[in-house]
Design a protein around this nucleic acid. Structure first.
Lengths: 111, 111
DNA sequence: AAGTATTATCGTAATATTGCGATGATATAT
DNA sequence: ATATATCATCGCAATATTACGATAATACTT
């Protein structure tokens, strides 16, 4: 069906999965890394850097912006995208919490 | 097209995205959390816990096992799944490294 | 051996995602 | 005002994902 049965899961699980989706496509990963690297928060010279069409990049940027992990400001005719640092840290914390959930089989190897 | 153009991205970006995919669906998140919580590494009583069909759970487990984040052992007629702790930590480290990549606009707010 | 329980896989249907060309909107340059 | 550059959105095509029923395979029970 392709339909995720969100009602079966908790709010937390659904929203965490949405964050996971951010990192689940190499184009989005590449965009984030580019924004991190070019410490000028440069606009979509991304279209030149990555080999994807402008429309495709724009779509990925839209998704990233929807989650809040990046923000964009108008700069003349172009857009100036960059990492939303507060959100970045917030998301990092959420992942850390997830990874640090109390481990099953602590110590003893159960499998 | 629906085809991810993997050849445009680095090995690192592609493999990181594959890890991200693990966390991009609430069912997989729920499965992982269940395995973490029930510190008995219980088998697919998951089918009872989550409201999904057995076939669906089995499919998600297969994906999780493919990445290595869980491992399963035969226990009579049933399967005993649990978190692969080494891999769990390894993945945690990879995410930490990703989040700690040198920040753009360090200090100054550029946008 | 026959029946039951558990799980993996196959096939299918429905929806989601990815990607791009075309188009429109806006801002700058001439 | 017209041309150019940049970006967002629309519409489409192709592939991927999600979900499940049906079926097979395995192990245990009686």
């Amino acid at each position: 069906m392709g339909v995720t049965k969100s009602d079966l899961f908790t709010e937390e699980q659904n929203s965490f999965a949405q964050l996971g989706k951010v990192f689940s496509h190499p184009a989005r990963v590449a965009i984030l890394q580019h924004l991190l690297k070019s410490n000028e928060c440069i606009n979509s010279s991304l279209v030149n850097e990555l080999g994807l069409a402008q429309a495709t990049i724009s779509q990925h940027l839209k998704e990233l912006k929807a989650v809040g992990i990046i923000k964009g400001t108008v700069e003349g005719a172009s857009m100036n995208y960059c990492i939303n640092q507060e959100k970045w840290i917030e998301i990092k914390e959420i992942f850390l919490q997830f990874f640090d959930q109390h481990p099953c089989c602590s110590g003893a190897d159960c499998c």
